[in-house]
Computed example of a mutant assay.
Amino acid sequence: MSWLNRVRNAIPFITKRETPDHLWHKCKGCGQMIFTKEYEDNLHVCPNCDHHGRIGPAQRFAQLFDDAKFTVLPAPRVTDDPLKFRDSKRYTDRLKAARADTGDQDAFLNATGAIDGHKVVVGVQNFAFMGGSMGQAVGEAFIQGVEKAIAERSPYIVFTASGGARMQEGILSLMQMPRTTVAIEMLHDAGLPYIVVLTDPTSGGVMAAYAMLGDVQIAEPKATLAFTGRRVIESTIREKLPDDFQTSEYYRDHGLVDMVTHRKELRETLAKLAGYLTPDKKAA
């Protein structure tokens, strides 16, 4: 036995201390490690680079509504697998996995409550559920939110986050584009505002439908917003696109969104808009 082995073996064995995975969050913007508690207290925004992390309906509702009090509308029921679709997995198996991971029935959820005393209906698209893809369930939930807003005589505020249409539902998914457009017209006919908050990422069929039809268009900072991918566009036009192309800031500078609003200021901004656009609808 060498002297190195003798010294090493003479050192008392010390168990490696395990650090729970949930204590730290790695920022996808700057790569820095942040205490999860600090990250959550900062509304899931990186305190170093201001990267806005993706959040689901539960966190979004808690951040927006007064005293974090809200009522979630039950998800509308639709046929799970109308086309009996299968790729590498059955569509029903993908739905079961997504529901187990998120705890939600599908990728869109509505809730009612008040923001600074103003009654509102808020719909949130969840990118964690199959990339926030738009299928029949998303379309039905959007229409449910519109109908609830009309019944409550309140604004409808929608947070988008999607990779586009849900391929497993084929034409039935694409049909949600005109259906949601008609629902927005119903809201306008009732004299009620439709406010859109674009979050990272919003793309595809959703971008070509209800994501860009708001009376007021807001975007979170540095969100990726696109109908089709950057490489597809560059290969089609044979030109190099600007570095900030398809970002919130690019859309604002070119007049496609009205404002880019930090998450810390979003609640106040939405409260002001609800007050301006429905001044007589303050909650009791």
Rank of each mutant, 00 (worst) to 15 (best):
F35H: 09
T181D: 11
A271Q: 01
K282A: 09
E249H: 08
F61R: 11
G205Q: 10
L270T: 09
L95T: 07
E169F: 08
V257K: 02
A226I: 01
K96Q: 14
Q63C: 05
Y156D: 02
R153I: 01
I55D: 07
Q168P: 01
A183V: 00
I14F: 08
L198A: 07
K28Q: 12
I218F: 05
A165T: 14
R90F: 12
E140T: 02
G214A: 06
V146H: 01
L109Q: 14
S203V: 00
V78W: 03
G255T: 11
Y210E: 13
G113F: 04
P242K: 00
Y251V: 03
T236A: 12
N126Y: 10
L270R: 00
M33V: 04
A183F: 00
S2Q: 07
K16M: 05
A97Y: 09
H44V: 04
Y156C: 07
Q144D: 06
T19Q: 09
R231Y: 12
E169K: 03
H254V: 01
M212T: 15
T202Q: 03
H22I: 02
V216T: 10
G139C: 05
T36R: 08
V78D: 12
P76K: 03
E185M: 05
A98W: 04
G53L: 02
K281V: 10
I55T: 14
G170Q: 06
T79G: 04
K240L: 06
V45M: 04
A141V: 09
T269C: 10
E152K: 03
P76G: 02
Q63F: 12
T261C: 15
M33A: 12
N126E: 10
G31K: 07
G131V: 05
R99T: 07
V197Q: 01
V232T: 15
Q217Y: 00
G113N: 04
A114E: 13
W24F: 06
S88L: 13
K89L: 13
A283F: 06
L225Q: 03
W24N: 06
R90N: 12
K222P: 01
S133Q: 14
K264Y: 12
E239I: 11
A190Q: 08
G135C: 06
E18V: 07
G191T: 11
T181Q: 13
A100V: 09
G205C: 07
N9Q: 11
F227K: 08
A97Q: 12
I34R: 14
F35P: 07
D66W: 03
A10Q: 05
Q136Y: 01
R54E: 15
P12C: 04
I195K: 00
H25T: 14
G204S: 08
Y91F: 15
